[in-house]
Write a protein that binds this DNA or RNA. Structure first.
Length: 427
RNA sequence: GUGGGCGUAGCUCAGUUGGUUAGAGCGCCGGAUUGUGGCUCCGGAGGCCGGGGGUUCAAAUCCCCUCAUCCACCCCA
């Protein structure tokens, strides 16, 4: 509105103290839960060579990169996601690290696209990864961290649900239907969009782009729309490649059940995830009403480290952004009261007592207490008002009545009770 | 990138069929006979009505362009 030249760039946020506190509320919860699970925090550069994304994550990401040429004529991009950076970092360091590697990060990520609700050009994303372990227990562990991150923020199983699938199961089912491997990517992309697309159109695309017969396409839609593994077992259980995948996914669900997270988890074979590098179990967490886009997405990506030149280590992880999550926190009324934690506010009757106030304030601050006072001459009334605004627990009053006897009056701002304390005890 | 909605004080919004000096609540600042806050009351600052152009005697109100924002598409880390 004013001076458009200096306006914020579209899709970027300012964080005033209230907004900053809200952001920290989220990030701190993420960090607490990560630590509880023994994950170690890492970070990387916000700017990376563009090739890291274009060649390894799939071409489709190119359109949304916040990329440009730097002064050294290098093609660079602000990082749109953390996983490629992680892969590159591990390519350098994984040999010297004890496996499995349990790392997490909270990078600020960037993408260049038109903003909408829950989608900006910048956000903070919690990334949690386990590298060097192929057991489904690792897959379960990773999802558990994500769910617990949300529970830590106050959500319950009535608020959120994790939808789970496995690309290996999808592949084996498609193979059973005689779909050519070359068409898997196309079919995955159709399945991924099933929920948002017209069923007739999906059916058509399965035939034209997936090379399926009409009746097979029908059946595949039916199977992938189911909420249990049994239907697939009944239909294709005699095929070994399918039954192996069914058992694995069933075992995975069992692990989450054992952790008590069963109510948060739901099978949904239409979950595929857009990124090209996922190879196994994939999941997305949604608000249960389904009003917002996915809060969290992740899965197994066993080939990525090798792709960027590292040792061929299996890996599983997820990303959870602060924007959609923030929307849901507000919607559910889970925004915490932001309290200013001021221990003391010092009120002086006249400027005569200012130096005494400064002296007390400074020694209290040296002891780790937070202390405030008015910076200019103000009425007592006004100073008390300010004390209230800053959320002071207690007010120290310095006036002739008490100071002449070597005391200060301390008022508890909640109870209103007052007591006298020797000034020497305060400094 | 494509299409549609929207744009009035810091925030949430009013502004009659185009007609004189553009309003409210909250917030902010000041004050309510200078030793006590949260309530209440009084007062004040703050808007080129997103920006530019056009129609008209007259535009916040109508038209065009542009920017921002929201929604859908695209895409989804």
């Amino acid at each position: 509105m004013t001076k458009p030249i200096f306006a914020r760039l579209p899709g970027f946020r300012d964080f005033t103290p209230d907004e900053f506190a809200f952001r920290e509320h989220i990030l701190n919860a993420w960090r607490r839960v990560s630590t509880r699970y023994g994950f170690l925090e890492y970070d990387g550069p916000p700017l990376e060579p563009v090739g890291l994304y274009v060649e390894k994550s799939g071409e489709e990401i190119l359109g949304q990169l916040y990329n440009f040429q730097d002064k050294g004529e290098r093609e660079v991009s602000l990082r749109p996601e953390m996983t490629p950076s992680l892969a590159r970092i591990l390519a350098d360091h994984s040999r010297s690290l004890a496996k499995p590697i349990r790392w997490f990060s909270v990078p600020q990520l960037f993408r260049y696209e038109r903003q909408q609700r829950g989608r900006l050009r910048e956000h903070f994303q919690w990334n949690v990864d386990i590298v060097g372990e192929e057991s489904v227990v690792a897959d379960a562990e990773v999802l558990a961290v994500g769910i617990d991150g949300l529970r830590e923020l106050g959500f319950g199983s009535n608020d959120i649900v994790a939808k789970i699938s496995d690309r290996r199961l999808l592949s084996s089912v498609l193979s059973a239907f005689g779909v050519d491997k070359k068409n898997f990517a196309n079919v995955f992309s159709i399945i991924d969009k099933l929920e948002r697309s017209d069923p007739k159109r999906s059916l058509e695309r399965l035939q034209t782009e997936g090379g399926m017969s009409e009746s097979d396409a029908h059946e595949v839609l039916e199977l992938f729309g189911g909420k249990t593994l049994e239907e697939i077992a009944l239909r294709l259980g005699d095929r070994k490649d399918v039954s192996v995948e069914l058992e694995r996914l069933d075992s995975y669900l069992g692990k989450l059940e054992a952790m008590g997270l069963g109510p948060y988890v739901e099978l949904d074979l239409r979950i595929v995830r857009g990124l090209a590098y996922y190879t196994g179990i994939v999941f997305e967490i949604f608000d249960k009403k389904g009003e917002l886009r996915a809060i969290c997405g992740g899965g197994r990506y066993d080939g990525l480290l090798e792709l960027v030149g590292g040792d061929p280590l299996p890996a599983v992880g997820f990303g959870m952004g602060d924007v959609v999550l923030g929307e849901l926190i507000r919607e559910k009324g889970l925004v915490p009261d932001i309290e200013a934690n001021t221990d003391y506010y010092i009120v002086i009757l006249t400027e005569e007592y200012r130096d005494l106030a400064l002296s007390i304030a400074h020694s209290c601050r040296d002891r780790g207490l937070s202390v405030l006072y008015g910076l200019s001459e103000q009425s007592v009334r006004k100073q008390f008002f300010a004390a209230g605004k800053y959320g002071a627990r207690e007010v120290i009053v310095l006036g002739p009545d008490e100071v002449s006897r070597g005391f200060a009056t301390i008022r508890d701002m909640d109870s209103g009770e007052e007591r006298e304390v020797p000034i020497e005890e305060l400094r």
